[in-house]
Amino acid sequence: MTMRRRNFLWGSAAVLGGGALGLGGAQVLSSVGSLAAESGDPDGVFPNIVLTSHESRNYRFYDDLIRGKKVIFNFFYSGCGDICPLSTQRLVEVQEMLHGRVGRDLHMYSVTLQPELDTPAVMRGYMETYGVQPGWLFLHASREDIELLRRKMGFVDPDPELDADLESHIGVVKFGNDEIGRWGACPSFADPEEILASILTIDPSPAARS
């Protein structure tokens, strides 16, 4: 693709994004408003946006969800037919394999890419459908905040056409330990035992011997 074509697509994607925000965002997000990113962590990687959970509780991304914690997160949307069903299924299996650690010393977050549709009630239904156990937060925020978060967390495709297409969204689970600054990622549709092995690398002292 030529640069000219890329620039054109980038421009149109931005226009579409603004349009979508105008249509659906206001009512859902009236309680929290849309916040410009405030730097959360010292490196400025994690935007301190406000997210609302499936229980309608508000959290600041860095201060409440990341700071000093071991976390696992991905992006989803409940209407996704291509990527999320298998990913969520896998992560539910991983949650089981973590034997109650989720919500205690490991925190799982799934952030919707369709905040207008994935209201707390819809997210609760989604969780029920998939058998998500307690301790795993499903979250939404304003479209533009989610967009910022998505970019900062690297859930992007360098091809703007693909990047603008929800159907081809990034199917990766990110895991990290903010206290020691260790972050990795793996495909969210990998075999659960491989996802688990990857996630466990965020424990400060991984298995001493393989």
């Binding site: 980038w10 979508a20 369709q114 967009e147 603008a164 297409d165």
Partner: peptide
Amino acid sequence: LIRYGLLAAGGMLVAKSGLSIRASG
């Protein structure tokens, strides 16, 4: 299951929406 094709037969999916440009820090 890992083979994507098997899971893609879900009928019409959500219309392309405007998730915008890359501007990774």
